[in-house]
Structure formats: C-alpha cells, structure tokens
Design a protein around this nucleic acid. Structure first.
Lengths: 143, 143
DNA sequence: CATATAAAAGATAAAAATGTCTTTTAATAT
DNA sequence: ATATTAAAAGACATTTTTATCTTTTATATG
C-alpha cells in the first residue's frame, strides 16, 4: 500500500508531533527506538522531510528534529507523496494511462469512490488532527 | 498500491478471459503486446498462476494459455494475494503488529471502512464479472 | 577561538523487485 | 520414431528500494 519509507516517515513525524516543540528537540538516533526504524534510515527520511518544510531541525548541541505548530498543519498526503510520489496512490489500479471516469478500466468501478474518498481523507487530515485523536483516546500508540 | 507483477497478472488473466477458451489458446509471446508487458515476464507470471489453478495451459503445438469457465470464477483477490502476498493490501497502514479495531493506530479510523470495503470487493468480484462489464459496455479495454 | 555536538550530504552496501535468457519437459504432427 | 512446438523451470542480469557508513557543515558552549 505505502512504501516502507512512507510508513517510516509518517511514524517519525507522528513521534515528533507527540514529543517535541520549538524548545524540546530529539535526535534521529533517539527516535529510532521508539518508532522501530533504523537510526540512519529515519535520519535520512527526516532530512528529506526537512527540505520540504514538513519537519524542522537545528544542528549542533541541543539540536535535533522537532515540529513547529506550523509543521503540524501538514496534511498526511504531503508526506506520502514526498516519499512514494503521487503516482503510487493516485494512479489507476492497472496503471493504464487513459483510464478515467468516462473511459474506466475493468477495475475502475470496483475501486470506485473508495479510492477517491481515501485520498481526500489523506488530503484533509493533518498531523495535528492525528495527535488530537491520540490525546482524546480515539487512537493509540506505540508506533 | 499493487505491485507491477500483480497488475501485469491481472491484465494477463483479463486478456485470457476475453480471448481464450478450452479450444482457443494463446502463447505468452502473443499476449505480451496487447497487454503491454514484457514477454518473458508475463510467461513467468502465467506459469505461477497456472500452478495455483488460476489459469490453464497446454504445452506443444497449438498449445498455450487459456481460461476455463472454472478459471473465470477466480476472485480478483486470489491473483493479488498470490503475487503481493496478503500482507501488502491487508496489513495496517503503518504496518503495526497490534493495530486492530479495539486498539486502532492513528491512521486506522482514517482508512476506516474504506479499506475493508475495498478488500471485500476484491474478494467478491470474479474475473467473469469483469468480463461481463466489458461486454455490457460498462468498462473498457485496451489494457 | 577551540571543541564538541548533531544535522546535512554523499558514498557505499545489501536486499528485493523487475526483467531476460537458456535449458528442460511435455505435447503434437509428420 | 523423429522433429517441432510451446510451456515449465532455472539461471542470470538489471533496477529500485532499503539500509548503513563516512565526511562535511552549522551551531552552541567553554
């Protein structure tokens, strides 16, 4: 469904959302354990997310990765698209170039609104909202 | 979403469903073009599907791959699971081992019924039904 | 300023997925 | 029987994804 990279990235960002802010930062190697992702791999992913404004970071002593309130407004789809490309989730089930509503491939109706609804959720839901759910006891950690 | 192998396999089986029967068979190399999949790759995939009773085949002159009426009753999920494994489609969005309805991960509700509905469709829909849709002008080729 | 710290960037390695080629086996037709 | 055909099986090559390691750059602190 999602690549490992996308899953790792979502877990990393979620961890940062729950455990950091402008003042309190965490180093890549300290995220690794709690989210169960290899340290140098999560570092790479967070750096990539940093370049695109999804996470924040500061170098040097007491530096590390963190999320600003602004960062937390990132919609989930942005993280997924950054790592998997838009194509993976949004393309036709059979990767047919000219499959669309008017000229649907044999699997198109089957997937139907299901997929578009799903993608809309990912576009409309932000990291902040996921955090709120956790705090409201609607969903659970650990990652 | 699906691996290339799964997409290729679905296209191959769909092509067989539309163009073959016990009497009329096609060779791997003649499927390749119409469905736009490398010849030796589709051959491998069809052999694998053959081992699991999804397609039929006969060796030698006038041999080739084909689908029996029985074969056409195969649900789509079988083809997908064979190539991608059940895990890919059915596991939690974050691949968390103990995510379930009672202990949902942060993405669980978001995906919600959408995913289970989708999987149910794949379980309940057969190749034969897709063929019927095409014949009824509800969906379109080419692959 | 010098030093230590931690991210950024780059290079390299390992594993998995995709794709191709060759040999073997089974069926057909002459 | 023999030759031909086409799938089955296996070996091999390429590409992509995942993972690790090393060097560089920026920042804070003494």
């Amino acid at each position: 469904m999602l690549s490992k990279s996308a899953k790792y990235a979502l877990k990393g960002v979620l961890y940062l959302a729950m455990n950091t802010n402008e003042q309190k930062r965490v180093m890549a190697k300290d995220i690794s354990g709690p989210i169960n992702v290899p340290p140098s791999y999560i570092a790479k992913l967070l750096q990539q997310l940093g370049r695109h404004g999804v996470v924040s970071s500061i170098k040097g002593p007491h530096g590390g990765f963190f999320l600003t309130e602004e960062n937390k407004k990132t919609p989930l789809i942005k993280i997924i698209d950054l790592l998997d490309g838009e194509y993976r989730l949004k393309s036709c089930m059979l990767s047919l170039k000219d499959c669309n509503e008017l000229n649907p491939c044999p699997l198109h109706r089957l997937v139907g609104n299901v997929k578009s609804d799903f993608i809309r959720s990912l576009e409309q839901t932000t990291i902040a909202e996921l955090v709120q759910d956790i705090k409201d006891g609607k969903s659970f950690l650990p990652l």
